[in-house]
Design a protein around this nucleic acid. Structure first.
Length: 695
RNA sequence: GGCGCGGUAGCUCAGGUGGUUAGAGCGUUGGAUUCAUAACCCAAAGGUCGGGGGUUCAACUCCCCCCCGCGCUACCA
């Protein structure tokens, strides 16, 4: 592998529209922090960059909802997140924010730089405009009736009821959420980044260049994107919140949040090191690593690198170890449904138990597939691994040393194998030592490869070996006859404890500090970084050294504590169900004249088949009494073609024809939608003649 | 529908250029032990490696088809 002089580590900029939950932590911040701690232990030059992502329409929308300005809105969440990170002990070198002036300048420089190279495309297209407010409406500022499920408050980019992604022009009866008025289409100019022109380069860089070293999920996703063909992407928006486009004819336009956000990494580095930031972003001997969740892969692996490439003389990410998602008690974590374990709430409910959360989240880290956090599992892992194996080992060594040597590290010397027992002790010592060194090497290798689950497992294995060493050598028995041998055993046991204190720093920083305190190691622990360099057990503690008081590292998580948490989630779920409207709201009143415009008839399905390349559409041939016509209906997930044939259906016969997937649909079949989204046919209670009208 | 990733013991996961009885930790059960937070140590039970075909002397590992989970994508008058 290429040798680098320094490392720039970024963790995804969290979006400032809500608090942090354990999914965020497990996905990006904890692995990043673990990795950075590892590099720092080795004495490497590393910067660890993060900050709040504060632009975009969702922010303005959220602010509006809370009745505050975007500024106040992002201030609130920025400080909440910053505090939670700090309280949890994520050790960023800087936690910045994209609303900073430095960031605005940097982002504008990026734009101008690329603009001056003539790389951007300019294009004018029709978008919805609110005439009363005199603003262009971003997708999420437009609501209307969802063409799919008829939900009356679907957003312009997505219907939250049925999950369909939309474009504003698909909405029926669009209206502006700002003024409530019906918006009009008006031309507007935007700038596009020609991703397609970077396709060949991306292919070479990723598909050929990173086949071996990028995680398979990341690589596969990138390859899929590139193979599908890349399109130019719009990088500006009509909005008054964000980084304004630095061009004379661009009033009211800002950079698209996805263009400016990753640049935030660079701005934050500038802020951290005004003089020396460039070497962290432009020196080919710097290694750039992005820690993100899988939702960010395309931006960090495709778009941002292309932008860096276009800007010129920037380095590209050497690796992007994206994680999959974390679920909670079998369900997706959801901010809107409040189905989450919020970081700040965890810290308040479990004071002094940061390591515990780190440990469990790393042990279930969604490195290769989505993982599930359950409180029961949390309790079990803490109690049976952290407490029983790790904490207990440290404690028993401390207690034994105090018991037999008044807390003074026994002399380390060659133990002459003068009898059977000593011989056995020496055998166990050699075995333990060899096993420990294997674990140390495996742990470090795993850390280098971003396999944090495995790395932490090897750490625990060190404690397991320690426990076994004590059980095998039984110093409490030997003490009755051979104190010199006991001294040797405990000297080595303390060596293991010292090495554990070193090794656990990336994973369990609080325990590391705590053990150092117990070992009273401040006078010599500066030499401990040799552990990370030699990649083997070091002689951590000098003989005759006076230890501090023994203290339990962790205590058991009691049933009541986790039951409280489970109950909390259960209550939220119940409240959600209670408060969720069971039936949809009534639509505005209409007149009999409105109704009489509809020509609703009963038809009979003559034939039915699946549409090619669609998993929702069925192509039906319907006898309407008047004619036989083709009707496409999005019911393929609810009815098979076979069961549709011969069925009587209710259809709107005078609806304007509409082409879908190349075929014209002449009418619409009426369906009842159950609360769970299931569609059921509506038809007369007894067979009627095709063509019968409905009124 | 297309594409990507995944589906291995109760749980969390390893593994594999195809080759003797498929591994680990936790959990469970039994034993041993007492320095330790009833912890540690030893041992055992537990898997038709998502399903079905195929290639092969031999497949969990390669090929084909299918099913399930997650994501991206097309589509749902």
């Amino acid at each position: 592998m290429k040798k680098f002089k320094r490392t720039t580590v970024t963790a995804a900029l969290p979006y400032a529209n809500g608090p942090l939950h354990i999914g965020h932590i497990a996905g990006a911040y904890l692995p990043a922090d673990t990795y950075v701690r590892f590099l720092r232990q080795r004495g490497e030059d590393v910067v660890f960059i993060c900050g709040s992502d504060e632009h975009g329409v969702a922010i303005t929308l959220g602010a509006k909802k809370e009745g505050v300005s975007p500024r106040q809105f992002v201030d609130k969440y920025h400080h909440l997140m910053k505090q939670a990170f700090e309280d949890f002990g994520i050790g960023f070198d800087i936690y910045s924010r994209t609303s900073n002036p430095t960031h605005h300048e940097t982002a504008k420089e990026f734009f101008t730089n690329i603009y001056n190279k003539g790389i951007f495309l300019e294009e004018t297209s029709d978008q919805y405009y609110d005439e009363q407010e005199q603003i262009f409406l971003a997708d999420r500022y437009i609501i209307g009736t969802c063409p799919n499920c008829k939900h009356t408050n679907a957003y312009g980019d997505q219907c939250e009821k049925c999950g369909t992604s939309l474009s504003p022009k698909q909405l029926i009866n669009p209206r502006s959420t700002v003024s409530g008025k019906t918006p009009v289409l008006r031309p507007t100019k935007h700038w596009y980044f020609p991703l397609d022109k970077y396709e060949a380069w991306l292919k070479e860089w990723i598909v050929e260049g990173h086949k071996q070293d990028w995680k398979i999920n990341v690589y596969g996703q990138c390859k899929s994107w590139i193979d599908q063909g890349l399109q130019p992407r719009s990088i500006t928006r009509d909005l008054d919140w964000g980084v304004s486009v630095p061009l004379p004819d661009a009033a009211g336009k800002v950079l698209y949040v996805w263009f400016d956000a990753p640049i935030g990494y660079i701005s934050a580095t500038k802020e951290l090191k005004p003089a020396g930031w460039e070497k962290y972003w432009k020196d080919p001997e710097t290694r750039l690593i992005h820690f993100i969740g899988k939702d960010n892969i395309v931006f960090h692996c495709i778009i941002f690198p292309a932008i860096l490439k276009a800007a010129g003389d920037y380095i590209l990410p050497d690796n992007v170890p994206a994680n999959e998602f974390l679920n909670l008690e079998g369900d997706k974590i959801s901010t809107s449904r409040n189905h989450a374990v919020w970081l700040h709430e965890y810290l308040a409910d479990f004071p002094g138990r940061r390591d515990e959360l780190r440990y469990v989240l790393t042990s279930i880290s969604p490195e290769t597939k989505d993982a599930d956090f359950t409180w029961k599992d949390y309790q079990q892992k803490v109690n049976s691994e952290l407490v029983s194996i790790f904490g207990n080992f440290v404690n028993r060594v401390m207690v034994l040393t105090w018991k037999y040597f008044d807390g003074k590290v026994p002399a380390e010397h060659e133990l002459p194998a003068t009898d059977e027992r000593r011989k056995k002790i020496l055998d166990h010592y050699h075995k333990a030592h060899a096993d420990l060194n294997v674990s140390v090497k495996e742990m470090i290798r795993a850390l280098q490869d971003f396999r944090f689950r495995e790395a932490q497992f090897q750490l625990m294995n060190m404690a397991r070996i320690g426990n076994k060493f004590l059980a095998d050598t039984e110093p409490w028995k030997v003490a009755k006859e051979d104190m010199e041998a006991v001294g040797c055993i405990l000297n080595y046991a303390l060596t293991i404890v010292g090495n554990l204190a070193i090794a656990c720093d990336p994973f369990l920083p609080d325990a590391s500090r705590n053990i150092k305190r117990q070992l009273n190691s401040s006078s010599f622990d500066a030499s401990w970084k040799q552990f990370w360099i030699k990649e083997e057990l070091i002689n951590a503690i000098p003989q005759h050294h006076q230890l501090g008081q023994a203290e339990l590292l962790y205590k058991n998580i009691e049933n009541e504590e986790i039951e409280k948490q489970i109950e909390k989630l259960r209550r939220t779920k119940m409240e959600n169900e209670k408060s969720a409207p069971l039936v949809k709201a009534l639509k505005p009143e209409i007149t009999i004249d409105d109704f009489s415009k509809l020509d609703i008839r009963i038809g009979k399905v003559l034939s039915a088949e699946r549409m090619e390349k669609s998993n929702k559409l069925l192509k039906l041939k319907v006898d309407t009494g008047i004619d036989q016509r083709t009707v496409l209906s999005g019911i393929a997930q609810h009815y098979t073609p076979e069961e549709m044939v011969g069925k009587q259906v209710t259809l709107i016969a005078n609806l304007a024809p509409r082409k879908m997937m190349g075929i014209e649909s002449q009418g619409m079949i009426l369906m009842a939608e159950d609360l769970d989204g299931k569609l059921r046919l509506v038809f007369p209670s007894e067979i009627v003649t095709p063509g019968s009208t409905v009124s």
